[in-house]
Design a protein around this nucleic acid. Structure first.
Lengths: 185, 185
DNA sequence: CAATTTTAGTAAGGCGGCTAACTATCAGTT
DNA sequence: AACTGATAGTTAGCCGCCTTACTAAAATTG
């Protein structure tokens, strides 16, 4: 399963203060929060990936199947490769590869759309649905365990702070017109 | 640059409440915090990766060079492939590949260790050092911008909460003796 | 001192992402 | 109706991670 390099031990705050003398744009508290985010994100991802590996699935395939699954309420849902690519923020080529292996393994089925022959409809097979029902209880239990060191208040605070970070990241990723400073790098 | 699938729009809280009726171990607040963590981590990573791509480097190579770089204070530092693998939490084979391309591009140099012929010493070249000094100001500036939507207090709160999440993830990833429940999945 | 175990680094092959380019199809325009 | 532009999905090749297995070297054991 593909991991990313992540620091095992983060630099101490004193290191960041020291480095900020040489790099005036380095704010130690911001940098520390950033490194914690990257590391926590990677460590949590690795725990989840170990669970996926135990079920012989990858995180990408799991998310595709999750998006294809029928769910109560107005949850994110897709039924074409283009929709999957859009909702999962990856390229259509990536989705083709994931659907190739999911179809090979019998979890999904692709069918040409008679109304628009450019498109394919994608559905979970019975096998795929049963697989999801088998993995989801443990999946959600693991998430609860992962976040279990935080109180409910802390979980909500974390969500709120991370929403702010996501919004900022999205705006920095937006076209240069929104952020001339970003374009200058 | 390799990205991971990440939900463009997270399910609303009501979806999680609905799903928790079917999956009793699903705690909506925990699940929401988890999804925010995964998404914020991926979005922030993508912004950083765009910066790396603009400098024709990848996040993995950058971290390797960062670990090789001489720094003031007691910052994480490595000088052999095994140390790099350990501090970056990846396999030694992965580090070999990264050093292969870094050496090809003239950023690092590997030399056999005369005292222990199993080992290689790895150093940044002058070109590697200059590259790092060229990229680091913009790197730290971008981190400051990414976290710039948060007050200093919020940055510290985020660090504290993520530290708790990391500790929990690390303990869940530990051998089964520490967590019989984890071993049961 | 010899045998065994451990460590270090690499090679090979696989997987899952990317980009670029392609074909086929549909939508819009003239 | 023909042409042009946009959309959908796929293919090919590349890159960066993995695991497994290997060789070489050092450490440990008896």
């Amino acid at each position: 399963m593909q991991q990313r390099l992540v620091l095992k031990d983060l630099p101490r705050y004193e290191c960041l203060v020291e480095a900020s003398k040489q790099f005036p744009d380095l704010q130690p508290a911001a940098c520390e929060a950033f490194m914690h985010l990257i590391r926590a994100g990677e460590e949590v991802t690795r725990v989840m990936n170990a669970h996926f590996a135990a079920h012989n699935i990858t995180q990408g395939r799991f998310l595709v199947m999750m998006l294809l699954m029928e769910k109560e309420g107005n949850c994110p849902r897709a039924s074409t490769p283009a929709e999957l690519a859009d909702l999962a923020s990856v390229s259509r080529a990536t989705i083709t590869g994931l659907l190739d292996t999911l179809e090979r393994d019998g979890y999904v089925l692709r069918r040409p759309d008679p109304a628009d022959r450019r498109q394919m409809s994608v559905h979970l097979t019975i096998k795929g649905q049963e697989f999801m029902h088998g993995i989801l209880p443990g999946h959600f239990r693991l998430i609860t365990q992962l976040m279990g060191n935080l109180s409910a208040n802390e979980q909500q605070t974390l969500s709120r702070l991370l929403t702010k970070v996501s919004m900022q990241a999205a705006s920095l990723a937006a076209p240069a017109a929104d952020h001339p400073a970003a374009a200058q790098s």
